[in-house]
């Protein structure tokens, strides 16, 4: 178990470093600069600006300085949100984004796995087909379509739920629902397919031959191997939810990190974009690490 963890870390850390390197070099060598967006600056001002932000140094020096700062948790100043550091923006926005993504992940996993099991209890029955259809549609419902539609129906037409801001707990419902829908559909489908494959395996027949009840056979013998693809999907899915949160924050006007990121990207706020990319890459590597550990719980052969 520890060996797997160490081996994963050995891949994850170089990956993270490569992400930082690549994004850094790309951004610094890119044509254009954040100062282009407004009025053209005269050469002297431009040089002064570059000096202030260290942009006149050789690339390798800039990189070294940047890496040193990142290690201390300092991602530099934001070029667009004047008076704010990138770290400050992250500290403000990340809790909102993580709560949103985390709640959506939990909801999606719970709904999806439950749906998959319900469908598998009576294969080919009406419930199975209904859930199958629902999940096929859910997978194709991007949050940027569901989000506005939910706002339209529940917020504007029915006025049941708040549509923006975070003034009450109820305000979380629509954003989380919109974000969780496609992931829940995918999880249900994966669970259902995994169970269908597991149910025809020899060890499940052995368990049935033992005279166990159908539910025991399903949950105790068929479900754990069926969940293996679900777990390996949830790592990337967590990444997808964080990405999806970008849109949801825009649609529902939530003060999360995603909104800063999009604004940063549109305005070429390099330090901000770089900081968020590094942070998210780290988070996603962490999720994949957790998924690998869960994997070992489900399949003793993976424990090495």
């Amino acid at each position: 178990m520890l060996a797997i963890l160490l081996r994963r870390l050995a891949t994850a850390l170089p990956t993270l470093l490569a992400v930082i390197l690549l994004s850094f070099v790309l951004m610094r060598t890119a044509p254009g600069s954040p100062f282009d967006s407004e009025r053209p600056l005269d050469a002297a001002t431009r040089a002064a600006m570059d000096r202030t932000y260290g942009l006149d140094q050789p690339l390798i020096v800039q990189l070294g300085r940047y890496l040193g700062n990142v290690l201390q948790g300092d991602f530099g100043p934001s070029l667009v949100y004047k008076d704010f550091t990138v770290s400050g923006l992250i500290a403000q926005g990340l809790p909102v984004s993580l709560t949103l993504g985390g709640l959506a992940l939990i909801l999606a996993a719970a709904l999806g796995i439950a749906g998959g099991i319900l469908g598998a209890l009576r294969p080919g029955g009406w419930l199975d087909r209904w859930i199958g259809f629902k999940s096929a549609v859910a997978v194709a419902l991007p949050s940027f379509v569901t989000g506005p539609l939910l706002v339209l129906v529940f917020g504007l037409w029915l006025s049941w739920l708040p549509v923006s801001g975070l003034d009450s707990a109820a305000a979380w419902i629509l954003p989380v629902l919109a974000l969780a829908t496609p992931t829940a559909g995918a999880v249900a489908k994966l669970t259902r397919t995994g169970l269908a494959e597991a149910m025809v395996q020899d060890h499940v027949r052995t368990a049935r031959a033992r005279g166990l009840s159908p539910l025991t056979v399903l949950v105790r013998h068929a479900l754990p191997p069926a969940l293996i693809p679900v777990v390996s999907y949830l790592g990337p899915a967590a990444a997808g939810l964080l990405t999806g949160a970008v849109v949801i924050e825009t649609v529902f006007g939530l003060p999360g990190l995603g909104r800063y990121f999009v604004q940063g990207a549109l305005n070429r706020d390099y330090p901000l974009v770089l900081g968020v990319v590094i942070l998210y890459a780290g988070l996603i590597l962490l999720f994949n690490l957790i998924a690998d550990l869960l994997y070992g719980l489900l399949d003793p052969r993976a424990r090495g």
């Binding site: 790309l26 890119a30 974009v273 968020v276 890459a281 994949n288």
Partner: peptide
Amino acid sequence: ALPFMFVVIVLMV
């Protein structure tokens, strides 16, 4: 393991 959507966004930027 990369946040690929962000990679695309970075490329766009």
